[in-house]
Write a protein that binds this DNA or RNA. Structure first.
Lengths: 349, 349
DNA sequence: CTGAAAGCGCTTACAG
DNA sequence: CTGAAAGCGCTTACAG
């Protein structure tokens, strides 16, 4: 009925529990091959599986890591973060105890102490999107921050390289020949917003394109918000209207599609657009499929777990690692429309 | 340096460890209020938090439940399942150890034995979408199946009420006045596909509408698949073309929007559409927002955890619980176009 | 090459 | 009202 213990195996094999433990754990020792086999057979025969809890009590490590997040589970795009952490944990024989606090401070405090009581070997503090966070008081030293950065440092952390991502997005448009490139930004700006803007500004500046404040608009971070902001952009006089729009995220880019279609503008023939996030089920499924910059959630999750487990060298205890956001080229970017190129030429002469 | 033990608290309070344990666990006992206070103060003073692993070894329960899934984490719509399970676990003072196997059998086997070794108090086996599954050999009795059903019963399980959902979807269209209602189905049909079809057929039949096989089409389960299938529907002769389309899921419904727009058909004026899933970031963000049937992922996750923990009465050990899929009314359904109503009348006379 | 024994940090009958 | 002691199931010095 109840699970067999190591002493049951010992009895069945006619040896001591010491011996059983030694062979089952493959401890460097000169136990004879005969005995080893006998022990293994006995273990199989009684269906023995060692108790992790007893072992943990003795060895003081649980092969378990706590992953606490603000709302990873309820957010559509961060599951891959969990998946990356999960895979790295498995490869290193660890289990992950996952707690989603829903952003509630009290829940968070309780979760941290429950995780400490469980004696997790390591802890990861994850956010749904790139943020700077206050460090919860009881968070153990050495915890790693995932998709967020501790306010005053002191912990390793990994975040997306948003500035470089913004730069890359703008480059895609510049290389396609665009000069009037808008940044359709979010209204209540998270960190990523400013960072991406910096990259955008840098790319344009390097390309000798003057920054036009009229081309920086903001909207709610939804398709409808994106549409509304895009309307303002597309209502600009012909010679000021952007030919390419870099959107803060894919949801807002969808709004740009809506606004474009509403006035008979085709993408990418009349208007080029690039998004951000590479959101599953949205970016690839637009018509035409959206060129975008991917958030490397899976890789970030894996990185965090690997430094938490100490199997990765570049996890400085006080550095934030910025992970590259690759450009995903699809079909929403083309050259600017011919008549615009003409106009531009006319203007500059 | 190292964490304080119960004996440290006992020493600090000048009592036995028995007493400390008794007061900290609020065990029914006649320990004097004075002593209790002294113990609590001592515990605070030394920063004591009991070790879950030591307690687990002794009490033989870990207050931990294993949640193993095929790919919940990497799928966008099932995070809420995790959230529901999570919330129920927290309310009952349990932690969830989450393992995503990615559908790999070997990983699954290893995960189950790791979870058993951890002595989880209960186990939940979750799927990304409604399926009938072979029961993994080593799965403990009493495990509960989430969004799937064990092939030969023997375990409690919870799945969406897809038949009723299909019925409800069709009713929405019927009540809006439609008679030519198509079912835009998926190509490689999961269980839900047939179930939803049954509901659809039942609703039409009850309403005295003959089932037209030409109105049951299939496509890949993507926006493009939905578009392609919708094209076939919309290419039908005027008097056969559906005025309302019930789609297997929201992604395919997006394809219907695409097909409709491509031929200048407005939704819902010229064509009504209802989806399924209430997919985050897609259903609500269409133009017009999509009327759909929601998959009750959060509630299913909660139900599964509650029966796993034994805090819910209706979790029969061998019954599958079908959870209602509520209709989410938005703006993609209207009455059929006037000229169609006229035509229909003409035909029936 | 193998075993007896201590100890990880708790809880809980049992005794007083 | 409180305490001494056994025991949960392992691992690991230590001894032989």
């Amino acid at each position: 009925m109840s699970r067999p213990r190591i002493s049951d195996v010992a009895a069945a094999a006619g040896v001591s529990v010491t011996t059983v433990s030694l062979v089952l754990n493959d401890v460097e020792s000169r136990i004879s091959e005969t005995t080893r086999r006998r022990v293994r057979e006995a273990a199989d025969a009684v269906g023995y599986a060692p108790s992790s809890v007893a072992r943990s009590l003795r060895t003081r490590q649980t092969r378990t890591v706590g992953l606490i997040s603000d709302q990873i589970a309820t957010t559509p795009f961060a599951g891959r973060m969990l998946a990356g952490a999960q895979d790295a944990a498995r490869e290193n024989d660890h289990l992950v105890i996952f707690v989603d606090t829903g952003g509630d401070q009290d829940v968070e405090r309780d979760a941290i102490s429950a995780l400490r009581a469980q004696q997790v070997d390591a802890m990861i503090y994850a956010c749904m999107w790139h943020r700077v966070v206050e460090v919860p008081e009881s968070l153990p030293a050495g915890s790693v921050f995932l998709d967020c950065r501790p306010e005053h440092g002191g912990f390793p952390s990994v975040v997306p390289a948003d500035r470089e991502g913004g730069y890359a997005a703008a480059r895609v448009l510049i290389e396609a020949g665009h000069r009037r490139i808008a940044y359709l930004d979010t209204v209540d700006p998270p960190i990523a917003s400013g960072l991406r803007e910096e990259g955008y500004v840098q790319a344009l500046t390097e390309a000798g394109i003057a920054i036009d404040p009229a081309l920086h608009v903001r909207g709610e971070t939804t398709a409808f918000g994106g549409r509304e902001a895009a309307d303002r952009l597309l209502d600009l006089p012909d010679d000021q209207r952007p030919t390419g729009i870099f959107c803060f995220n894919d949801r807002m880019a969808v709004g740009v599609y809506l606004a474009a279609h509403a006035r008979g503008l085709r993408i990418p023939d009349d208007l080029s657009v690039v998004g951000y996030d590479d959101q599953l089920l949205v970016a690839a499924e637009q018509d035409p499929p959206l060129t975008t910059v991917a958030l490397p959630h899976y890789e970030m999750g894996r990185w965090a777990m690997e430094v938490a487990l100490g199997v990765r060298a570049d996890g400085d205890s006080d550095a934030t690692h910025r992970m590259e956001c690759p450009v995903i080229r699809r079909d929403s970017v083309g050259p600017p429309p011919a008549h615009v190129a003409k106009q531009s030429r006319r203007r500059t002469t």
